[in-house]
């Protein structure tokens, strides 16, 4: 985005988008954390598509699965909170993209794939996960936390001295 210009209203819109995506991530995470029985196993076992073999294998490894469950629950919650707050925005957007890639890859709506669970909409290749991923891309490249978010404060504090501003190790 070097060289791009964003108007004030564009930045506000992106911030709103960031808070919304963050909210969704955080609730996905918290809902899993507070449910006594959630495990990714069910989702993984139903995996379709090119990577299905890997996901099903993962579902059958009790030890790995336990890690994967913890990472997913806490990861989603933390990424969500950071996005809402606008703290380490680029890093958390990147992590969010990572999660979405995995979720998408486990059950991609490719031509001819049917799911045992009825889905609430109609998708062909693009589904809501992919759309959310696109939103995170925008958030990541605009570093929206530095406009409205804790990144702005962190950034201001760090850059008081003439030092290179390395806020987000996202790159």
């Amino acid at each position: 985005m070097e060289g791009a210009t964003f108007s004030r209203s564009a930045m506000i819109a992106i911030t709103v988008m960031r808070v919304l995506v963050g909210w969704h991530f955080m609730y996905e995470g918290i809902a899993k954390l507070t449910s006594s029985s959630w495990s990714a196993a069910g989702y993984l076992r139903q995996a379709r598509g090119p990577a299905a073999g890997f996901f099903r294998w993962l579902a059958a490894q009790p030890n790995l699965l336990a890690y994967a469950d913890q990472i997913t629950m806490w990861g989603l919650t933390i990424v969500g909170a950071l996005l809402i707050l606008g703290l380490f925005t680029r890093l958390s957007a990147l992590a969010g993209i990572g999660f979405l890639v995995l979720f998408y890859a486990a059950n991609p709506p490719f031509v001819g794939y049917f799911y045992s669970l009825p889905s609430e909409g109609s998708y062909l290749i693009v589904n809501k996960q992919l759309v959310e991923l696109g939103a995170l891309l925008v958030i990541m490249v605009t570093g929206s936390g530095k406009y409205a978010g804790l990144d702005r404060i962190v950034h201001a504090l760090i850059t008081r001295k003439p030092a290179p501003a390395v806020v987000s190790p996202a790159r």
């Binding site: 099903r56 294998w57 579902a59 059958a60």
Partner: peptide
């Protein structure tokens, strides 16, 4: 049939 030991 899936092998319960490996999931494969």
């Amino acid at each position: 049939i899936r092998d319960p030991r490996t999931g494969e």
